[in-house]
Amino acid sequence: MAEQYPREDMVVVLGTPTAESSRLYALTVTEGDPSWAGALAGTPLGLPVYHVTEDAIKCQVSPEVYEEQVTLMEMVLDVADIADAVQAVRDSSAPAV
C-alpha cells in the first residue's frame, strides 16, 4: 500500500475505542511493528495518524456525515484521553519524510 502512494499523501485515521488501543495502533503505524499481523504488517514508519474524533479531522468532515456516523460514539468514548494518546505518539515520532 505504502509503495503505491507517496507517503506524504497518506493519512491513517483511527476509530479505536480507548486511549490504550489508540496508542497501540498509532505506534504501529508510525513506528511499525514486525509482530503486528494485521493489514498494516510491514507498513513503513512515519505515517501521520489521527483519531476520527480529533478536532483536526472533525472540523474538516461534513457535519451531517459526522453527526450520523460518529456523534453518538463520541458521546460515550473518552475522546479527550484518546486525542491525548494519539497526539503524544505524533509528537514523539519523527515527521514523515
Binding site: 475505542p17 480507548t18 490504550e20 488501543s21 496508542r23 453518538l72 460514539m73 458521546m75 460515550v76
Partner: peptide
C-alpha cells in the same frame, strides 16, 4: 488488552439514545 469495557460502552450508547 486495550479493548475497553464493551458492555459499559453499549449501556452508555443506549442511555445516550
Amino acid at each position: 488488552a486495550g479493548s475497553g469495557n464493551v458492555p459499559l460502552l453499549n449501556y452508555r450508547v443506549i442511555a445516550g439514545l
